[in-house]
Design a protein around this nucleic acid. Structure first.
Length: 417
RNA sequence: CUAUGUAUAGCUCAGUUUGGUAGAGCACGAGUUUUGGGAACUCGGGGUCGGAGGUUCAAGUCCUCUUACAUAGACCA
C-alpha cells in the first residue's frame, strides 16, 4: 500500500476527547476514528489489525471443533422475555415495522439456543460447538477508554452443547487451553492470567482472562507462583489461590480480554432444549459460552505495546509486515530503485506499507513510521545506497543496520515471504 | 444514572473577565528554497462560534432551555 493513497492520515494534534493511550495513539495513527461516544470507525490500518486478531482467534476456534456461523445483530425482544433478560440495563431497544419490539444483541444466548434447537436432537448430534465473530451492542452507562469499553464492539462468542456436565467440563478445559494459545500468539502470553470470577446467575465460578497492565480497569488478586488470580467480585469468599492455597496474593491492575462460562442448563431450560439419549430418554442439554473481544484486545495491546513515539505492534497482528520508507525521491535514479524494491516485496507477497511521499521530509516519515508501529522499517535513500544498500531497523530497537539489496533474499524474503 | 466541566475552521486551541468588523498553529491548495528525526518563506481556500429561544441599538461573549462530548463515581450479563 502506498502511504500517499492511504485512506486515513496520521495527525500531530492529540484528539481532545481521547481519554486513554489506546484512543490517542490509534486515532493519531489513523487506525480508528470515533463516530459517537463508545463507537468507532475502523480505518484501513485499524481494520487490518482487527482482522488479524480475528483470524488468530478463528484458527484456534476451528482447531477445537468450533464451527463458524453468523447470527444477526438484531433480534425480536421475545427471546429476551423468555429468559427474563429483557430488563437488562445495557440492552438497546428499537422498533421494527408494525411496531414490533426489537433489540440489538449484547450477547447471543437468546439467539443461539433456539437456533441450535433446530438442529441438535439426539446424543448423536452432541457435543457441538458454534461460534461467531460479530459486533455486540451494550448501552453502557458510561463508555470509556477508547476500544476498551465501547457501546458497539467486536466479539467472538463460542457456544457449546453437551449431553452432561462431565462433557461440558471436558470441553471447557479444551477451550481454556485454546484461549492461552490465542494470547500467546498475540504476544500477550506471559502477562495474561486465568482469573476466577463470579459465575453470576449461571454457576459458582466463571473464568476471566486478564491481561496485566497498569492502566487496566480491573483489580485482581494474583498468585505469582501459579499465575492464577481472583477477581474483586469473589475476593471476600475466596481469599487464597484456588490452585496452591497461597494466601499472599498480590493486588494488580489488569484488563479483561476473555471470559468463559459454564451456562449449564439456564438457557436450555428456558427454551425447553432437550435431546434424546441412547435409551430414548429425554434429557436437558448442558451449555457453555466463551467470549473473546478482538476490539478490546486491540486496545489492550496498544496500552501495553507503545513508547513515547507511538505503537509497537507484535509481529502477528501488525497492519503490515514492512514499513518501506523512500527518501530522496526527487532523484529519478533513487526513485526507480525504491519503486523496484516495493514491487519486489509485493511480488513476494510481503505486506508492505510504502511511504512514497515526495514532498515530505525524512523526519516526518520517521515520526509517522514510529507512530504507526510496524515492526520492521526499511529505508532506502541516497545515503543508504552509498552505504551499500538498505537500512533496516526494528521498531523496538534503537540500532539500525545496512543490508545489501541482494541479501534481502536471505533476510526479509525468507522471514516474511 | 448522579455530580462537575466543556462546546469557536478538517484538527488542537485563543477570543468570553469589561457585549462593538471571526483569530492563531497544524492540516489542505499554488509557488520558492530545503532534503536523515515532526523545515522556512510568500500567497490562497475554508466559520450560520453545538442547537432553540430571550435581553440589547448591537451577542462567540449575558440569561433560559436543550443536545453532544469529557472527568469522577455508581454500573459492568
Amino acid at each position: 500500500m502506498r502511504y500517499s493513497q492511504l485512506f486515513g492520515k496520521t495527525t500531530k494534534s492529540i484528539p481532545s476527547d481521547a481519554d486513554s493511550v489506546n484512543a490517542k495513539l490509534l486515532t493519531q495513527g489513523g487506525f480508528i476514528q470515533k463516530e459517537i461516544s463508545g463507537v468507532y470507525n475502523y480505518l484501513p490500518l485499524g481494520l487490518r489489525v482487527l482482522t488479524k486478531i480475528q483470524n488468530i482467534v478463528r484458527q484456534e476456534m476451528d482447531k477445537i471443533g468450533g464451527q463458524e456461523i453468523l447470527m444477526p445483530a438484531m433480534t425480536s425482544e421475545d427471546s429476551w422475555i423468555t429468559t427474563s433478560r429483557n430488563g437488562m440495563e445495557v440492552l438497546f431497544h428499537l422498533k421494527g415495522q408494525g411496531d414490533t419490539n426489537l433489540v440489538l444483541n449484547p450477547t447471543h444466548e437468546e439467539v443461539v439456543t433456539p437456533l441450535a434447537q433446530k438442529y441438535l436432537f439426539s446424543y448423536r448430534d452432541l457435543p457441538s460447538a458454534v461460534y461467531q465473530i460479530q459486533n455486540k451492542f451494550r448501552n453502557e452507562a458510561r463508555a470509556k477508554s477508547g476500544l476498551l469499553r465501547g457501546r458497539e464492539f467486536n466479539m467472538k462468542d463460542l457456544y457449546s452443547f453437551h449431553t452432561d456436565e462431565k462433557d461440558l467440563d471436558r470441553y471447557y478445559e479444551i477451550v481454556k487451553k485454546a484461549y492461552f494459545e490465542i494470547y500467546k500468539r498475540l504476544g500477550l502470553g506471559d502477562i495474561t492470567v486465568l482469573t476466577f470470577a463470579s459465575g453470576g446467575a449461571f454457576s459458582q465460578f466463571s473464568h476471566e482472562f486478564q491481561t496485566l497492565n497498569e492502566n487496566g480497569e480491573d483489580t485482581i488478586y494474583l498468585c505469582k507462583k501459579c499465575k492464577i488470580a481472583i477477581n474483586k467480585e469473589i475476593i471476600d469468599t475466596q481469599k487464597t489461590c484456588p490452585e496452591c492455597g497461597n494466601d499472599k496474593l498480590e493486588t494488580v491492575k489488569a484488563t479483561e480480554v476473555g471470559n468463559i462460562f459454564k451456562l449449564r442448563t439456564k438457557f436450555s431450560k428456558a427454551f425447553n432444549f432437550y435431546y434424546l439419549d441412547k435409551d430414548g430418554q429425554k434429557k436437558i442439554i448442558e451449555m457453555g459460552c466463551y467470549g473473546f473481544g478482538p476490539s478490546r484486545t486491540m486496545g489492550t495491546i496498544v496500552e501495553i505495546c507503545h513508547d513515547e513515539k507511538g505503537i509497537i505492534w507484535p509481529e502477528s497482528i501488525a497492519p503490515y509486515q514492512i514499513h518501506l520508507v523512500g527518501l530522496d525521491l526527487h532523484d529519478d535514479k533513487i526513485k526507480s530503485q525504491v519503486e523496484k524494491l516495493y514491487q519486489d516485496l509485493l511480488n513476494k507477497n510481503i505486506e508492505v506499507l510504502f511511504d512514497d511521499r515526495i514532498d515530505v521530509t525524512a523526519g516526518v516519515k520517521f515520526a509517522d513510521a514510529d507512530l504507526i508501529g510496524i515492526p520492521t522499517r526499511l529505508v532506502i535513500s541516497k545515503r543508504s545506497l552509498e552505504n551499500g544498500g538498505i537500512e533496516l531497523k526494528k521498531r523496538n530497537e534503537d540500532k539500525s543496520e545496512i543490508i545489501s539489496i541482494d541479501s534481502l533474499e536471505n533476510t526479509i524474503y525468507c522471514i516474511y515471504g
